[in-house]
Design a protein around this nucleic acid. Structure first.
Lengths: 259, 259
DNA sequence: CGATGTATTGAACTCGATCAAACAGTGTGG
DNA sequence: CCACACTGTTTGATCGAGTTCAATACATCG
């Protein structure tokens, strides 16, 4: 099994940071013992989210910090005219809903893609605890800065990058994160639909589907429904970086990619 | 005579928060007197930036917080293969370069579009002062959250929105911000080139130019080089919101827009 | 089994990009 | 003052990447 099944069978209340599989990806890991004790006291759990259920939606009062404990969730914003843009897929340890903090209301929504647990840390308690334990605040801040930097990269993607490169970049990113989470970087499971991937990348499903087929024909990937095997990491990076060497593309390999 | 000329003739060292025209748009305004005193002690100024000069570039050691004092600057990131994406235009009071904080190095670059002053607040001093004056930190945090929220809206724009809507949205945004800065919301000066606008919106110059012409033909705008007059605010909003009623578009007005 | 949601594939179309040319300001130097 | 180069903007003609529409395949589940 993969990403999404970690801890899926735990009941909400049995979860503790001590036994949390995701603790090492969580801000929890960066805290000292006494800070961790403080942290543990603040953590509450929603009942596990079934696929499609949401952790919170835009407009909800923002009274907690949310951190993915297990599973996989997507965050998205909706525009006035009904468009939706998926703004991220989030793995255990990821902090959710920081945008919106300044308004005390969520500006985005979060749905589970697979059965997922999301921890909640009461904001008031957190702020209070931060006074004596500044590292708590520090860690939240770091998460925000990381997300800012990420968002800018995403803008570059959506504004300047071709469809093929977007997908390649997406897969590499997923691969890297899978690896960080102790899973195989070569075999990745897409727990989100093609539709979700397309939306996230600013494309339509058909384009994503065609690109998967193309990358498979090029010998870069093996795609089997939701399972993707990366056969040629280097070539995938070339596609992502637009080193448009792998010239003839499909049908047959042409040169050693060192050319 | 607009946005960009505020204070352009001040020499770097004469600037003080007490006399700063932008103080009310700055985090400074949210501070108490004693906090303001602390803040003032930390502020340093670069010599005024001439158009095209940069305040900092990606990779620079991040040792200060930057805040626009006067003028107009753009921030952008470059990709490995030479693409550039402008990530924002920044008016007085805006905080720059928060992304990158987590790495202690700037991940984006900032160039002046017109003669501009940028204040620098030494990060070490700021962190130290924050210990006794938590509101300082609080304000920086708020800026980060606002930028996060903004970035997500931008993703929606770049991923889902048509060229015409992007430009409309951009102009409305500029108009709103001009108004906030005490300038006319109807007559706005584009201190950035068409190229910059296009890049920011994920388009090419030609498209932006054509869209200006179109919006003018539709009677929504009057465009005169860098000066844009918004004749019909409501119609511009309709374009931005995709209320695709103003159906026949160009050549002749067709219905009252209440239809 | 049919029903439903997801994925792939094909054919035609379209929006915005690209290529190319002309035009308008703004210096700069003779 | 004009010739010039230079940069930014507009406009036209054509192209193409990605969308749209439509049909089919494929799983999963009642």
């Amino acid at each position: 099994m993969s990403l999404q099944h970690v801890n899926m069978s735990l009941s909400g209340q049995n979860i503790s940071c001590d036994t949390c599989h995701a603790a090492k990806y969580c801000m929890y890991a960066a805290l000292t013992c006494s800070e961790q004790d403080e942290f543990k006291k603040m953590v509450r759990h929603q009942t596990p989210l079934r696929p499609g259920e949401h952790s919170f939606i835009a407009g909800d009062r923002l009274k907690s910090i949310h951190i993915v404990h297990s599973g996989l969730v997507k965050s998205y914003i909706d525009s006035s005219d009904g468009e939706r843009q998926i703004t991220g897929f989030h793995l255990p340890g990821d902090v959710l809903g920081l945008n919106g903090m300044h308004l005390k209301n969520h500006t985005d929504s979060v749905d589970a893609l697979v059965t997922s647990d999301v921890c909640q840390i009461d904001l008031a308690q957190f702020v209070h605890a931060s006074k004596s334990k500044p590292m708590l605040r520090q860690q939240l801040l770091l998460a925000a800065y990381r997300q800012l930097s990420n968002g800018q990269k995403m803008m570059l993607m959506l504004g300047k990058v071709s469809a093929e490169r977007r997908l390649a970049y997406f897969l590499l990113n997923l691969s890297r994160r899978s690896k960080e989470h102790g899973l195989s970087p070569d075999q990745i499971t897409l727990s989100m639909t093609r539709q979700d991937i397309a939306n996230y990348l600013g494309l339509v499903v058909e384009t994503v589907s065609r690109l998967f087929t193309k990358l498979q024909h090029d010998g870069i990937l093996n795609v089997e429904r939701r399972t993707v095997n990366i056969n040629n990491y280097k070539m995938l990076e070339n596609v992502a970086e637009n080193h448009h060497d792998h010239s003839g593309s499909s049908a047959k390999f042409q040169r050693k990619l060192t050319l």
